[in-house]
Write a protein that binds this DNA or RNA. Structure first.
Lengths: 335, 335
DNA sequence: TCTTTTTACGTTATCGTTACCGTTCATTTT
DNA sequence: AAAATGAACGGTAACGATAACGTAAAAAGA
């Protein structure tokens, strides 16, 4: 095969049919493994297709079959190192199955999540994966319900609406508190991330339960953007308003990084004066000094599983609902 | 508009035509702003389309026009924080123009770049953006040449093949050396990244020239993967084999982060004993302690400009060739 | 041997849109 | 007033693949 390949060849199925001396229909059947062709014909067709370097036209195929072999992926902020890992996993799994990823990034609130989902659907993706949606339930269900397969990451939904890959943040939260208490910390504050976050709420449930189990309660709770800047502002506020604290648990690692900056600026040493726990275990977490104690979530795996689940829901009627991922406590130097 | 929207409505152009009392052709013309319809007809059609919530079928449209309103974007490693920024910029610009991004991630060498480009092309993207290609010129030109518009990021190419958005790494390299020399460093080693990197080679050219201008030369040059792990290994090697050095310049920030780890492990203090300079200015760079001195590249802008350039090349015959981005020295605490 | 089933194809119609080529009718030109 | 022009629209035929249905031959069953 030293002839230059051509992924956009103008060779049509009719050309292949002609070359193989059969009808286009037979070529279509053979190329889609639908049987109904003798071994020799199959060989002749395969040979001709290869010889002519035939590539099915995705538009024509889509027009007939209403399938695009494309998956829509919506992430809230690709700039947060958590999501590239998820994307990476999704990309791998999709690519193996011959699917491509149509990526959309929710830019803060400047463009609404709802619009982006619709844009993806309008492009006729075969299914859609939405990460950490902040849409109200009703809206989300309305947008997703009528069509196509869907999988939500870190967000619950009934099985008719979507499959789900969720992290058990309650257990994660619980482990964080247990660990801090074990280290002798009692005056713990929470940097809670965005109010509207589904995952944020379940963390809080876990915190409350585990505080209660230890006969403690949160010293303070502040909400903020899930970014380093947000964490820094929140931590600064905590340092000013809740002086006695000896630990902070952060919504995610980015927040924890911000909190570290704020502490450093205030001349407070970590972990001696204040212990710090994050969530996610983004790659930077272990590169910081002190390296960040955090609850690791298998990000790449989430992406992979989301795609697998989605492909399953695309292909079959009997739809799997999803899986739960349990975060793992990674103890480093901030506690 | 309290009727539920439907991004996949089965309303066809014929339905709209019927409702507006015209032919499908007229609807098509109006909806594509091709003129040839009176003001009132235009209004009637627009109204009907909106009323029925008509959405053009992208497959049918593509089949006729061979346009998908989709851009392929190939990045080498989405896990490197450099690329999400580029993607973010590209996504923004594409989204504004009504285009979607088809994302592909080159997983190390397990899947070849060439295949992924072809997969993108096979999906009939209207244009393709390739970041930091490591393909040999001949291969790259062969894959790109015959079709569609293309833009390369950090890689040169003749105008007939592709537009280019390149960083002037030569100047960047020069500024890094000047800065170190100014700080009194003379025994400088280079962590040079991957051998096959286009940008890596132009950095080396800049290093050589600037060393010469100062009457110096590199104490050592080691190549490595463009990752933290790669940088760590390279730095460890340098510490063992080139004992007297007082500075390291790294291929990118990830390498620099790895080098920091290696130095810390060896009990070497930064910047007192060894100064460190990175490239890119990824978000983590300023969050490290000591914060990393680096050459900032406008990543988001690169993504935006790449898309703009690509859309221009898609739309017009007379094709712009591209722009050069000059990195800016950001002095922090490692020098 | 004759009927029934199965295998291996081919025909036709269709998905929804737009390019190409007309046609009609009002307006301007001479 | 006749002819030329142009604006506003319509009819038809692809674009390329496949679903639905049809048919001829071979294989299986009676």
């Amino acid at each position: 095969m030293n002839r230059p390949k051509d992924p956009e060849s103008k060779i049509t199925i009719a050309d292949v049919a002609r070359a193989a001396g059969v009808s286009p229909m037979t070529v279509s059947r053979v190329l889609n493994d639908q049987g109904g062709a003798s071994a020799e014909t199959t060989q002749r067709i395969l040979l001709a297709a290869n010889e002519l370097n035939y590539r099915p036209n995705p538009f024509a195929r889509g027009l007939r079959s209403d399938r695009s072999r494309t998956i829509g992926l919506l992430v809230p902020d690709i700039t947060n190192p958590f999501f590239p890992e998820v994307i990476r996993g999704a990309e791998d799994a999709a690519s193996v199955a011959g699917y491509n990823l149509l990526l959309s990034n929710v830019v803060e609130n400047s463009k609404r999540e709802e619009e982006l989902i619709e844009a993806l659907l309008r492009h006729r993706v075969d299914g859609i994966i939405v990460c950490s949606s902040r849409l109200p339930d009703a809206t989300l269900h309305k947008v997703l319900a009528p069509h196509r397969a869907a999988v939500l990451i870190n967000r619950e939904a009934p099985n008719e609406i979507a499959g789900t890959i969720v992290t058990d943040y309650e257990i994660g939260a619980s482990r964080a508190i247990d660990h801090l208490v074990e280290r002798g910390r009692r005056r713990i504050a929470i940097i809670a991330g965005p109010r509207s976050s589904f995952g944020g709420k379940s963390r809080l449930v876990g915190f409350r339960k585990t505080f209660a189990a230890h006969g403690l309660e949160a010293q303070a709770i502040v909400y903020c953007d899930p970014t380093a800047a947000g964490g820094q502002a929140a931590a600064a506020q905590l340092l000013a308003e809740a002086p006695g604290i000896d630990a902070m648990i952060c919504y995610n690692d980015l927040n924890a990084i911000g909190a570290m900056k704020a502490c450093r600026a205030a001349g407070i040493s970590i972990p001696e004066q204040i212990a710090l726990v994050g969530f996610d275990d983004i790659p930077t977490a272990e590169l910081l000094s002190p390296a960040l104690t955090t609850l690791r979530v298998q990000k790449r795996e989430m992406g992979e599983e989301a795609v697998r689940l989605l492909l399953n829901r695309i292909a079959t009627k009997k739809r799997q609902h999803g899986i739960v991922i349990v975060p793992e406590l990674i103890i480093r130097e901030t506690t």
